[in-house]
Computed example of a mutant assay.
Amino acid sequence: MIFRWSGSCLVESAEPPSAVDVADSWLVDDGRVAQWERHRNRFLGNIPGAESFLAHVPGCVPGVGRWFPRIEAHGAELYLRVRPAQTLREDTVLWVPPGPEQRERPLVKGPDLEWCAQLRAQAHALGADDALLWTDDGLVAEAAHSALAWEENGRMMFARHPRQLPSVTAAATRALVPGWGAREVTVGELVDLPVWAGNALHGWTPVMGWVTAGGEQREATATPAQATTRRLNRLIGR
């Protein structure tokens, strides 16, 4: 179901006629909302003045069941898309595409959603859940729909890259995990580390396998501890 902001309330709407400029999504599970304030603030950072619209959003999301709503800006028009959540996965397989990522505005969620969706569809066709995004220098930015982190020397590390969307899941985790670090990481390094993929829908999931640029599937050589993964998700309210 889609709602359009009239300026004073949300009214049922047809599909917006234009592409998304800015978007944000979050999980609602039987009324329990994961990190709404952070998603709200990220959206406001790109669409200042949307406070009244955002104040009406929670009341339009059902309190029973699992939902993955999305707020959208199409130019000056604001929309809420109320969507049932997909089945949550417990682990992740990542595909390493043969070429570097091509997002036009990587620091804003919205303009490159269609490109990322097409890349994820290619990943699905190869048996993976998401696609790694890397740049010409061989450094990892993130995944098409996930932040990336790994265990290194007893602490949680995050990929550092200038072409990286400010992840709500990563920010919420960093606020609660002591001693975390961040550094640049190459594709070659990452595939041999115990890696997590994290996003608003699935939370943190261990990367259990990889698909190479040539389509070869292989198990991860190292995986994070299940207990650590559960602890991370509890910390961020999952």
Rank of each mutant, 00 (worst) to 15 (best):
G63M: 13
S52V: 01
V140Y: 01
H145T: 12
H56A: 15
V20A: 13
E216G: 12
P84A: 07
M157C: 05
E72I: 10
A225I: 08
K109P: 07
P84M: 07
F43I: 01
L139K: 15
R155C: 04
P98R: 15
A227V: 09
A171W: 11
R42V: 11
N41M: 10
A225R: 14
R38I: 12
S52N: 07
H161W: 05
G188Q: 09
A220G: 01
D130P: 08
A141C: 11
R105W: 14
V207C: 04
V22L: 08
A159G: 07
P206A: 05
L27C: 01
R155T: 13
G179F: 03
L193P: 04
L88D: 03
F3N: 08
A55I: 12
Q86A: 03
M1F: 15
P206K: 08
G7Y: 08
N41I: 06
W26C: 03
A143G: 15
R238G: 05
V187G: 04
P100H: 05
P111D: 03
L232E: 04
A50D: 14
Q35D: 13
V93K: 14
T212L: 07
K109W: 00
L193K: 05
P48T: 04
A149M: 02
D112L: 10
E152Q: 02
R42E: 08
L148C: 04
V33R: 09
A222Y: 08
T221Y: 08
R183P: 07
L10Y: 00
G49M: 02
D91Y: 10
A182F: 07
E216Y: 13
R105P: 02
G181W: 03
G203T: 00
V195I: 12
Y79N: 04
E72C: 03
E104K: 10
D130G: 07
W26G: 05
Q226C: 12
A197I: 06
P98H: 11
R83S: 09
R38H: 14
A131F: 10
L44Y: 07
V168W: 05
T135G: 12
A144G: 09
A220L: 03
H202L: 02
V168S: 11
G49K: 06
A50F: 13
E219Y: 13
L176F: 01
V20L: 06
R105Y: 15
H161G: 00
W115E: 09
H39V: 14
P194I: 01
C116K: 06
R103M: 09
A85L: 07
L165A: 05
T221G: 13
S8A: 11
C9E: 15
H202P: 01
R38Q: 14
P58T: 05
P224G: 11
L139V: 00
S6N: 11
D29T: 09
E219M: 12
L148N: 01
D112S: 02
T228R: 07
L27S: 10
V61H: 06
G214N: 13
H39K: 14
E51G: 07
R105M: 11
D192G: 11
E152W: 02
D192P: 03
W36A: 12
G59A: 13
D137N: 08
R218Q: 15
